[in-house]
Write a protein that binds this DNA or RNA. Structure first.
Lengths: 189, 189
DNA sequence: CCGATTTCTTAAACTGGTTTCATTTTTTGA
DNA sequence: TCAAAAAATGAAACCAGTTTAAGAAATCGG
């Protein structure tokens, strides 16, 4: 049932069947439909989701009611509002399934007990956090070093399959510009 | 000698004197002068630095030889090129002391042994990584939601003391605009 | 399979921030 | 303490990306 997650964990740490058995009571499942909302502003983000199947996004609404997408999560990625999940403060984010999803998740309230019971899981969590940190660092680099147009072309070349899964206007939002500007760029070549 | 670090660790995890004794063989000290370079592109970032005293920045050079500052680290912050430190790939960053610094650091090569010897230190490292993640998330939020001018005013109001420690052009670089634009804004009010 | 909704495109006027170049002010270290 | 270097300012021309508004194309769900 949770083998997708166990396989992922085993890429990072030694994880015996006994560890899996100890972990299982802390794991939960959720299936969501296309467009279903998993979190909205004002709520506390109590779960950390592992995407077994599907595609999730997180976004903010700005003062002009425009969506600003900050995160996409596909298969084998973890997604949460780290801020709310860790501090317990209410979130400012929406989290929504773009495609129908199968999710595995753990609960914030049970995290300390889980780490105590399965230390290998804490090592894994540390490594996942560090890997997310590297991703954020690369992203700030990316924003600093490239113009909007360069970022678009780089993204499309680096992740060609991704464009098939999200509408263009969402990619525009994620990359930080308008759909109109994206059309302008695309018309060029 | 390392009490500043121990005090910081104790804000996050239970950390007995025995833990401190076990940790100490893995800790190193470094004193650097104002403007001294700690890391430059092409090198592998082998250390994770804790700023006991002073102020460090990380920056990139763009194709026009302009500095793009990505990180400032002050007292009680950890700083490293996470990407290079974790993957062992050569860095693209410069790391430089803005003020004379007293640093404490650990070595990438000894990290696994350290985590094994002092598990509480791994928990602490996880929490530090998660906290850095929250900082990055807030920063992407910040970039998404505010114009350059708004970001400047927000930053100056939120961290008034910081302006005394870094030249304005460095803050401009960190916030993603030119010194000229900063002068323009400042002249307004 | 078709009407409703969502997504994509085009175009013109506009603006926030850059570039270039020159000058002034401040800081530094010998 | 003073010359040299570093940092800050100013102004004008410019440009990358936005805004507004409208129509066309694609997709979805009943």
């Amino acid at each position: 049932m949770y083998t997708a997650l166990y396989n992922h964990i085993r890429k990072y740490v030694a994880f015996a069947d006994a560890d899996a058995a100890a972990l299982e009571p802390y794991l939960y499942k959720k299936e969501v439909k296309r467009k279903e909302i998993l979190l909205k502003p004002g709520q506390v983000c109590k779960d950390h989701y592992f995407v077994k199947k599907g595609l999730v996004r997180m976004y903010l609404m700005d003062e002009k009611d425009t969506e600003k997408i900050t995160t996409f999560a596909i298969e084998n990625w973890w997604v949460t509002d780290n801020d709310s999940f860790i501090t317990g403060q209410p979130t400012e984010y929406y989290m929504q399934a773009i495609e129908a999803c199968e999710l595995i998740y753990i609960k914030a309230a049970e995290r300390d007990a889980l780490f105590k019971t399965v230390p290998a899981y804490e090592s894994y969590t540390r490594m996942i956090a560090e890997r997310a940190l590297v991703a954020y660092q690369r992203r700030v680099n990316f924003i600093n070093m490239m113009s909007d147009e360069e970022r678009y072309r780089f993204f499309v070349e680096s992740f060609p399959g991704f464009l098939q899964r999200v509408p263009q206007y969402m990619l525009a939002s994620y990359l930080g510009f308008t759909p109109q500007f994206m059309s302008k760029i695309r018309a060029k070549r």
